[in-house]
Design a binder for these strands. Structure first.
Lengths: 111, 111
DNA sequence: CAAAAAACTTACTTTTTAGTATGTACCTTA
DNA sequence: TAAGGTACATACTAAAAAGTAAGTTTTTTG
């Protein structure tokens, strides 16, 4: 089924999509989880040294709500919480590749 | 030639790409110019009624600097300035489609 | 019993981005 | 000569996002 886009609805659609990985840290987080990786909170902290705990948790929570990240809590002490991408989250990879390829075209373009 | 991405460099690459159409109005503007359209400043204003002149010009100028928009000045009075996408700007379309398609997958996903 | 580790939470400040309101230059037409 | 159209510019305010600097809970280890 094809959609009938107008400039405005198409822009809104893309914006909706972008919102899901918008925020200064979401992409870095995702790229750490692409390929099925499962990482603890503390491992993500170490992997992204410049992020603060507040930002890390804030972004993870939003991504969970949006359905791109899965939160896996192990009933242990000290706590152990792991994060992974959902199938849908993983499925974003090719679209990001398309963006990367587009960015590369610039070189052949002008100047 | 393949690139050697790490989570961090890949994220940075995508962020660079995103920055080019980041801002509340750039996508709407682009979607009005996709397909080779050439529009005057005032036509864009009318097409996007909720944008202010300041925002419109600000975004257009940034897009010009970034190389996605071309500014065509006609030496006339009253002034006539037209805007169009560069080839590279047009080339973004498929990447945005990929995003739209990804967003659609959500329905088949969970819930 | 004190200290430490993990995963957060909260109050507050700074920075960034968007929006409001008004002004300008230039030429044309009535 | 006054008014109007077009494409801007500029100063200022408001709202949103990010960052800082703590503190909390729970259980294990020395």
């Amino acid at each position: 089924m094809e959609k009938n886009w107008t400039p405005v609805t198409a822009a809104k659609g893309v914006e909706q999509a972008l919102k899901i990985f918008d925020g200064k840290w979401k992409l870095v987080i995702m790229f750490h989880l692409f390929g099925g990786q499962v990482l603890r909170f503390s491992e993500l902290e170490k992997a992204i040294p410049t992020i603060t705990q507040k930002m890390l948790i804030q972004q993870l929570r939003q991504m969970e709500v949006d359905g791109v990240v899965r939160r896996i809590v192990h009933a242990q002490a000290p706590p152990k919480v792991e994060y992974a991408l959902t199938d849908w989250g993983q499925a974003l990879c090719p679209a990001l590749d398309a963006l990367l390829k587009w960015a590369d075209l610039r070189e052949n373009h002008d100047r």
